[in-house]
Simulated assay, not measured.
Amino acid sequence: MSDTAPTPEERELQNTQLQKAVIVALRPGQPPRVLAEAMRYATLLSAPLLIVHVDVTRFVTFEDPDGMVHSAPIDLNIDTGAEEFAELRAEVEKVLAGSGLTWTARQLVGDPALAIKHLAGEVDAQLIVVGTRSRGIGESIREFFTGSVAARLSHRQSRPILVVPLEEPVPDTQKEIWPE
């Protein structure tokens, strides 16, 4: 099952059904290892799987008392977040078809660490699964300004976090972890 923009009543019902979920944060085109690990833990914990994509091109403008979040785009000329979410949902549906897992997909907006933390509190998540960042200068610059989502989550909430390496480990003999 999947959803895009539930009403407040539907969201409350979903949150009830998703109690103790395993949350996995994904991006389109991300190596399948992150989703595979999340599926494994959801199965081991007999928990629903909550796939999240965070649209960093939008920011939260306000939240209603009933939990409905209103957002606005940073750039009024783009809607890449919706396209990325649709692409991600299609990738996930293929992988999860026939898995037997109860799952849903949700798009969050704004700061990834804060958005995931807030959602984890809503559903009393058992585990949060995130991937490491890719190596490269572009990712190094992005992380310099925004910080590591995994590190920021580990300092801002108390739930267990599983950080899944996206690539082969850097050999101990390699001095630079992120060569240019």
Rank of each mutant, 00 (worst) to 15 (best):
G29D: 04
P48W: 05
S71C: 10
P48S: 07
L96T: 07
L44K: 03
E37R: 02
D75M: 03
V60G: 10
L49M: 12
D75V: 00
M39L: 06
F59W: 07
T61K: 09
I74R: 08
D66V: 04
V56W: 06
V69Y: 15
R27T: 04
R40E: 14
V92I: 04
R58A: 13
L45W: 12
L49F: 10
P73W: 11
R27K: 13
E37I: 00
D64E: 12
Q30M: 12
R27F: 14
R58I: 00
M39R: 04
V69D: 12
A47H: 11
Q30H: 02
A97E: 12
E91Y: 05
L44A: 03
H70Q: 05
I74N: 13
A47M: 01
T43E: 14
P32S: 07
V34A: 09
E87A: 13
R27L: 14
V69F: 09
A42W: 00
A42Q: 03
F59M: 12
V56H: 02
A82L: 13
N77W: 12
F62Q: 05
V69N: 02
A42G: 10
V52D: 09
H70P: 01
A86V: 10
L76P: 13
P32G: 11
R33Q: 10
T80W: 08
P73S: 08
A97G: 10
A90L: 07
R58Y: 14
A47D: 04
Q30C: 07
A97D: 14
R40A: 15
L45F: 15
A38L: 06
S71F: 12
A72G: 11
L35F: 09
A42C: 05
P48I: 00
Y41G: 02
G67C: 07
P32Y: 01
E63Q: 08
V69S: 13
R27D: 14
E63I: 03
A42D: 06
N77I: 00
I78K: 05
G29Q: 02
P28N: 06
T57G: 15
